[in-house]
Write a protein that binds this DNA or RNA. Structure first.
Length: 422
RNA sequence: GCGAGCGUAGCCAAGUGGUUAAGGCAGAGGAUUGUGGAUCCUCCAUUCGUGGGUUCGAGUCCCAUCGUUCGCCCCA
């Protein structure tokens, strides 16, 4: 008769109370900022055709090359669980002609993403991202606005020891020129690079820049800089973004080695990292500009910029800094004594709910003393005690748990009484 | 995908080849069938993630497997 116990799929996990309180706090805070800044929520499917990610993120990337949950549906469509959401949002924008709603669209989203990776702290196969996208704005103010929004959001959650890194990837032509310069420089050192970097020499040489191998780093230090290969227009854009950040008093560091993993980025790339506590998965938020993506997906040219924030990593940070939050107890705990009081307890609770007063009924059936104990442990402010004799007389006992003060209140007056007491 | 560490109850754990697997927290019952976070008593692992092996004997050693953590990789 014993059945084997099942557990969650590898790399996925359940988010239980009280951890969920942190999630809700993050979501509520984010929502407030999004409302203030005029961002609308968008919800796109978790499942998209694989082609979407191949075209947007690029086959040369690990995300598309080996980390997607892809399969064939019964209708023989090649689909994938989304590994990120910028592509999905842009697909929806193009598909529904959202540009007709106005030249600039500010959107935000929140939801699960999937990547087939080796699980680690701060890295799951199903993870959650909260993100924004500003579509249709080429102005460098959009870059700064979006960065400021992420910065403010994190600050207002109480996470203050963060580092903002920015860089510019220029336009594709800039990057192509730089790629060649970098190859010319690195090729003579080929044998001294670490194995991974040798691989990347052909496929994705820019990624060699952020290798953690000491020998490679030493070589990279003398390498030509991407910033020196930017066109005047690209440089101008980057400088304007910086000056806006200066005006907003948001501190940043320029990191020439910051290269985004996804193909669609142009111009601004940025990352917000935790200074401590997250180990190697220390990037909490990452994003940038991706002016070429809309065209890639068959839309009209649409400049765009956005970011995504890793929920699990942020939750981890908040837990490390502040611990799990204490869940608020009910204002009123409804306890009953005797046999005929059960139905009354539900009626009492319901009338309290209807009046907007949080209340909880003791469902344990334990001895009366235990019920009172539970009322205290749950940190309720009040216990409403339902006894047979009182019910017969149409009254209830109300006990203030902090002081021990106790009064009898007519059943009809209970809500009013508790309302007055606050 | 590569390298390393760890896995004893719901949680934190002691235990490093010798018979009945400490302790603490949490939980359940009772002392206390009309009033609280205290105290006391009782209960709570036929078994050490799982499966094999070595041994007279395995939580302890070996192998495999699963999970998890750390680093690489990747990225948020």
């Amino acid at each position: 008769m014993d059945s084997e116990r099942l557990s969650a799929v590898k790399g996925t996990r359940d988010i239980l109370p009280p951890e969920i309180a942190i999630w809700q706090r993050i979501e509520a805070t984010a929502r407030r900022w999004f409302d203030l800044a005029g961002y609308q929520e968008i919800r796109t499917p978790i499942l998209e055709v694989t082609e979407l990610f191949v075209r947007s993120i690029g086959t040369a990337t690990d995300v598309v090359g080996k980390e997607m949950f892809s399969f064939t549906t019964r209708g023989e469509q090649e689909v994938s669980l989304r590994p990120e959401n910028t592509a999905g949002v842009m697909r929806a924008y193009v598909q529904h002609h959202l540009h007709s709603q106005g030249d600039v669209q500010r959107l935000w989203y929140s939801g699960p993403m999937f990547r087939y990776e080796r699980p680690q702290a701060g890295r799951q196969r199903q993870f959650h991202q909260l993100g924004v996208e500003v579509l249709g704005a080429a102005d460098p103010r959009a870059d700064a606005e979006v960065i400021a929004l992420a910065w403010q959001l994190l600050q207002s959650l109480g996470v203050t020891d963060l580092r903002l890194l920015i860089n510019s990837l220029g336009i594709p032509a800039d990057r192509l020129a730089y790629r060649q310069a970098l190859l010319d420089y690195l090729t003579p050192y080929r044998e001294q690079l670490d194995a991974d970097s040798q691989e990347r020499l052909q496929r994705n040489p820019l990624r060699i820049l952020d290798s953690k191998d000491p020998a490679t780093q030493a070589i990279v230090r003398q390498a030509p800089k991407l910033l020196d290969h930017l066109s005047p227009q690209s440089l101008e854009h980057f400088q304007q973004v910086q000056s806006y950040l200066d005006k907003l008093a948001i501190p940043y560091e320029i990191d020439p080695k910051l290269v985004r993993g996804l193909d669609y980025y142009t111009h601004t790339a940025f990352e917000i990292q935790a200074v401590a506590d997250l180990g190697s998965q220390n990037t909490v938020c990452g994003g940038g500009r991706y002016d070429g993506l809309a065209v890639e997906l068959g839309g009209a040219p649409t400049p765009a910029v956005g970011w995504a924030l890793g929920m699990e990593r942020l939750v981890l940070l908040l837990q490390k800094r502040f611990g799990d939050p204490v869940l608020p107890g009910p204002r009123v705990y409804v306890v009953s004594r005797g046999e005929v009081t059960a139905a009354v307890s539900l009626q009492v609770a319901q009338s309290l709910w209807q009046a907007g007063i949080p209340a909880e009924v003791d469902l344990s059936g334990s001895a009366f003393g235990k019920q009172m104990k539970r009322a205290s442990r749950k940190q309720a402010l009040w216990a409403v005690i339902i006894g047979e004799e009182e019910v017969a007389a149409g009254v209830l006992q109300v006990k203030q748990l902090a002081t021990g003060e106790q009064v009898r209140v007519a059943m009809a007056d209970l809500v009013a009484y508790l309302g007055e007491q606050g």
